[in-house]
Amino acid sequence: MDTAIRISNLRKDFGAVTVLDIDALTIEPGTVTAFIGPNGAGKTTLVKLISGIWAPTRAKVLTVFDEPVDQSVRRRSTTNVGVVVDSSQLFGMLTVEENVDYMARLYHVPKADRAERVRAALEACGITDRAHDRAWTLSTGLKQRANIARALVTKPRLLLLDEPTSGLDPVSAEQVYDTILALRGAGITVVACTHIMAEVSDLSDRVLFINHGKVVADGSPTELLSHVGRVVHTIRLPQDRLDQTRAQLLDHGVKRTVVRRDEQGVLLTALDCPDSRVLESLGFDFERRAADLRDAFLVLAGD
């Protein structure tokens, strides 16, 4: 079976700055993989390199379903890659159906199949009832679903989503999630860049944490949690006690903490402290909860 994405010695520089440097990476077909990481980590750059929109500075191997990613042959490629960025990819004056049809024609979908493929793409995204509405009249969530339909009409084997639910309310986001899950069920390989941990835990088979252009962590959502343990403790304290508290925790073997500030003071989250008695013995008033991917994100981002 083909490998969906295969990367070896991939590098992208912008001037003197290396924004992406990946030694090796493979993504298997039919899976949903999330690229997560802080802003500027290189997630979008990686998506644009895989899609062929941008050219790498260096790439020993960069293939999609064993076909080299090369802009000059992209049009003639039989392995279509769909890219969904945001609703600005839609032409507002055109209807949803026309937007999808536009892409079908650009990607040389045979005339005999075009109408059916457009219909199927709209149906897959649950937007058939809005097919004849102009794109600019749709809500943000519906626009994004229309955008996904636009990408699906070419029957891509790989679908790249760059923050697919950015700016969407929870209901709209849920509708997009349902669409993505349906795509996985249909055997399409999905790669999604996201900051939303709910998307990562609910949708993804695999998570790649990218920071400073490198893959820092790679595993299932559950495996990613191993970076923070099973439980975390959160202590609220005034700003002037922060350094003292951290020093006390460090003396008791609690090396990793995350600090957040709000109008009430400081929230200190202790990450590698499975035993609450340590904090009790220090007299802290704390809250204990199960670790989640947001904690893993903060640790891996080096916050």
Binding site: K48, S51, V73, R75, V83, V85, S88, Q89, M103, L106
Partner: peptide, 13 residues
């Protein structure tokens, strides 16, 4: 100034 630029480049090369 929108994602249409990349869309057109990806579609047409």
């Amino acid at each position: 100034q929108s994602a249409k630029l990349d869309l057109l480049i990806a579609a047409d090369g």
